[in-house]
Write a protein that binds this DNA or RNA. Structure first.
Lengths: 173, 173
DNA sequence: GTCTATATTGCGATAGAC
DNA sequence: GTCTATCGCAATATAGAC
């Protein structure tokens, strides 16, 4: 999950994102985050001086994970749009966790909404460049958004993905 | 918004849902809900004895709004799937507000997750009956989910809907 | 860099007057 | 049916020892 799990700051972000995913905003208290990361609350606050800084740290890590994901997408060649949907249906990757954490935070934090808008923009640009068709790019992105939305309340998207692939085949994709 | 705005219980649910939509769970405190509905906290707690009961009331109202919506969909005839997507892109209707409130609550409350799963199930059944094609029904539902997801962080879905309609036209819809 | 102890605030809920 | 006053608790954040 973390790039370097021995780094306390990374472990704190991991704990924060995981608690957001599993228990929502009010489950991700400073006490709970510190305990999950194996430090005291004082230890946490040495690294992130306030909850706002912890949120900022989580959103910044999302941004760098998205940058990496965009590079991975570009490496997928012809299957780029399929790679996008397959990873949208995935659960438990660092990116997935980070993205769900951000969509929890977006409920109450404008910064998280902005981060999600930027993420969507980055993915749309890659899809649109690849497909050369804004209608298809937007439609595929919405399907991916839908799969994230459903994961948020515990629905596996494996079956959904199979249905979608059948429809894409009819569109020559 | 309310069926009967002079009914205090309805006004309390309206206030609760609106605060959830606009400020998330931690913005929807009993104090804030009571103030927005124009009563005191004690007044609120006379009608809903705890926050859990308020949540239950909101989810039950969602369920009845979905029942009504399913009937409206069936009245849309050939345009049923288009009606579904158009209403998914709508903002500010009682159903829309109630649904976004539930997706906020779903972060931390299993009951809300269950309510959303049932809502999706009801809509899927109508779409699938109408289209006679589970691949298309699931794909269209995911697109609708995606539009709800995006509304949650303040993205207008009017343009997105236009793109989607172009793709549906290619599929003979 | 990590800890404990504590100040402070705000929330959910109760009690009882009107 | 609605109000005010208040209790108890949990959460953020600070202070200072180690």
């Amino acid at each position: 999950m973390a790039r370097n799990p021995s780094d306390t700051k990374e472990r704190l972000l991991d704990a924060f994102d995981t608690l957001l995913d599993e228990h929502g905003i009010s489950g991700a208290t400073l006490d709970a985050v510190a305990a999950k990361a194996g430090v005291s609350k004082g230890g946490l606050l040495y690294h992130y001086g306030s909850k706002a800084e912890l949120i900022k740290g989580s959103l910044e890590r999302l941004s760098s994970l998205v940058d990496e994901d965009v590079e991975s997408m570009k490496s997928a060649g012809d299957r780029l749009h399929l790679y996008y949907l397959e990873t949208s249906a995935e659960v438990g990757t660092p990116l997935d966790r980070s993205l769900i954490a951000a969509s929890c935070l977006a409920q109450e934090h404008e910064d998280a909404k902005t981060a999600l808008r930027k993420t969507r923009e980055a993915w749309f640009n890659v899809l649109n460049d690849h497909l050369g068709d804004a209608d298809l790019a937007m439609t595929i992105q919405l399907i991916g958004d839908g799969m994230y939305f459903n994961q948020n309340f515990g629905l596996s998207q494996d079956e959904a993905l199979a249905h979608v692939k059948n429809v894409l085949a009819r569109l020559g994709l």
